[in-house]
Every structure is written in structure tokens, then in C-alpha cells.
């Protein structure tokens, strides 16, 4: 079950990461890695800890134990906005587009951390420079903006006729599926070394799901490294090089999709654990219901 020993250092490495909420472990000692060019999926039923893990990887939340490394460097202590500069781009489970901004502006914001004025690090001078650039808009800024815009339109064109006619419409006016597409376009605009997708097909109908699947497959074919968090097992079958299965906060297995698909542990994780009353009854120190005091309420006579 343990993945093969890798010669190269993984791009993202999760080492014995845990996250406890009030003593309850939402993520419990999870370890795995993603190599450059790989597509890895993390799957599991509702409440398995996928979203918590995703938040830990993307810096929205911090682990209570363990470490996460990106390209060999620990992520601990970095502010949330520093992740983009490292080359990590994410989507959100419920499609967090900038509602009142146009489709084009949404996608352009994906390139925020790539812009020249944002990349330079001098503290106060840099603030003034950004202000001056905004005000005066010198040639270099205009060129950069034009280049980014061309790139954004190119990315949007990859979705065919879905988004190109709507470049200047506010994102809130889009259909749900289109919002998800805008989110992915925005993430691609970062030119991410690692693309993190959080349930990219949640709430989509089968046709839209298939379309999204094809799109992600194209990205993968281009060599994009992808971490996919998914609920639907069948969806990740075609896409993933490796699948990590979580349940109850723990990694229960990891392996090739076909193997995972037929793993009885995985199926049980999804459909729920079978009832094992004898095992539990042994620890049971008190009866669930006191037999002597059965309810004698007559529901038909009950109301009012």
C-alpha cells in the first residue's frame, strides 16, 4: 500500500499532519506527497476531513501537528497571501468568484502575484510605487496589463463559447457551472506549479461534470501538477495517478485508482460502517433505554 520510494523530492509533501478542534482530530496523522507533473486525488465521504486538509495545505488553517513542505521549504508561518507567490493556486468548493467584478477582471486577479509591482519587496517605497503606477500608468504597466489581458482571454477561450461572450459581465450573473469555470481560469492565470481543485464538479449536472473532467484531463496532459479533492470516486478514476482515501480524519489507503475503487475498506467508508453491536455492547455501561420506563405518549392525541 505504501507508495514507491521516490528518487526526487516531491513538490508538495505532507508529513504526519494533524488538526484538532477542541480535542477532536479532524485530520489525524496524514502523510503523502505529490510529485511534479502528477495528479493526486484525495477522496473520502462527507466529514472525512478532506476540506480541513485542504485548508491546511492552502494556508487558511494551520496544523496542530506535523509539517507541510512545498518544494522542500516548510509552509508553516507563512501568511495566507504568500502561498500564491510560491505558485500554489486553488479553487473553492462553492465557487468564490468576485461577484461584482467582470469575468475578465476575475481572471486577471489570478495574475496578481505575478505583476511586477507586486513582486518587488521594498516596504514603504513599494506602496508609493504601486500608487504612482496606478495613477500614472506608465508604458511598462500598460504593456504588462495588455499582455496579461491577452493571456486571460486565451485561458478563457479554452472553455469554448462558455465564457468568451461574457468577458465583461459581472461574475454574479453567471450560471453556477460558469462560475466554477471562471474560478479555474483565475487559478490558471497564476501559472501555478501546483493547482489545487476543491470539488470542481460539486453541484454540476452529468454533462457539465463530463466537460469539466475533459478540461482537467487536458491540463494534466500538459504536465500540470494537480491536487484534486473530490467526493465522487468515479470522477477521479480517469484523472488520477494516485488516490489518497480518507475517512474519519485518517488516510485509510493510498494507491492506483482501480485498486482503490474495489477496496472493501473504501466502499465501507462511503456507505457507512456496518453496525457491530456486540463489540460496542461490551463497552456499554448503561442500557440505552430503561426498559421499565417505556414511553407511553400517544402521538395521535398529542398535538394541542
Amino acid at each position: 500500500m505504501e507508495s514507491v520510494q521516490r528518487a526526487t523530492r516531491p513538490l508538495l509533501e505532507i508529513k504526519q499532519v494533524s488538526r484538532a478542534f477542541d480535542g477532536v482530530l479532524a485530520v489525524d496523522d496524514v502523510s503523502f506527497g505529490i510529485d511534479e507533473g502528477e495528479t493526486v486525488s484525495v477522496i473520502g465521504p462527507n466529514g472525512a476531513g478532506k476540506t480541513t486538509l485542504f485548508n491546511l495545505i492552502t494556508g487558511v488553517d494551520q496544523p496542530t501537528a506535523g509539517e507541510i513542505f512545498f518544494d522542500g521549504a516548510p509552509l508553516a508561518g507563512l501568511p495566507a497571501h504568500a502561498y500564491a507567490r510560491l505558485g500554489m493556486a486553488r479553487t473553492f468548493q462553492h465557487g468564490r468568484v468576485f461577484g461584482n467584478l467582470s469575468v475578465l477582471d476575475n481572471v486577471l486577479l489570478g495574475a496578481h502575484s505575478r505583476r511586477q509591482v507586486v513582486r518587488s519587496r521594498a516596504p514603504v517605497v513599494n506602496l508609493l510605487r504601486e500608487l504612482a503606477y496606478g495613477l500614472l500608468q506608465p508604458g511598462s504597466v500598460k504593456q504588462e496589463e495588455a499582455a496579461l489581458r491577452a493571456e486571460a482571454e486565451e485561458i478563457l477561450a479554452q472553455f469554448g463559447e462558455r465564457l468568451t461572450p461574457r468577458l465583461h459581465q459581472p461574475a454574479y450573473s453567471l450560471s453556477y457551472a460558469n462560475r466554477r469555470r471562471v474560478e479555474i481560469a483565475r487559478a490558471l492565470m497564476l501559472r501555478p506549479r501546483l493547482l489545487l481543485l476543491d470539488e470542481p464538479t460539486a453541484g454540476m449536472n452529468p454533462a457539465e461534470t463530463q466537460e469539466m473532467l475533459d478540461f482537467i484531463a487536458t491540463l494534466k496532459a500538459r504536465g500540470q501538477t494537480i491536487l484534486l479533492i473530490e467526493h465522487k470516486l468515479t470522477l477521479v478514476m480517469q484523472l488520477s495517478d494516485r488516490v489518497v482515501v480518507m475517512d474519519d480524519g485518517r488516510k485509510i489507503t493510498e494507491g492506483a485508482p482501480e485498486v482503490v475503487r474495489h477496496d472493501p475498506q473504501v466502499i465501507e467508508a462511503y456507505l457507512g460502517h456496518r453496525h457491530h453491536p456486540p463489540a460496542n455492547a461490551a463497552q456499554d455501561d448503561e442500557p440505552v433505554v430503561q426498559p421499565a420506563t417505556r414511553l407511553t405518549i400517544d402521538p395521535a392525541a398529542g398535538v394541542l
Binding site: Y83, R96, F98, G99, Y133, G134, L135, V141
Partner: peptide, 27 residues
């Protein structure tokens, strides 16, 4: 001029969704 510049776009992103803005590197 400011609100029509990339800076203005960044400000709007801040208004719309701070979490998503941060995820894309907006300090």
C-alpha cells in the same frame, strides 16, 4: 484613474471576498 487601474481592481477584490483575495496573493 486609480479605480480603473490594476490597483482599483485589487481593491474591488478585497471588497468582494477577502479569503479568495488572499488566496491569490493579495496582502
Amino acid at each position: 484613474r486609480l479605480v480603473r487601474s490594476p490597483l482599483g481592481r485589487t481593491w474591488r477584490a478585497l471588497r468582494e471576498d477577502e479569503v479568495a483575495a488572499q488566496a491569490f496573493g493579495i496582502d
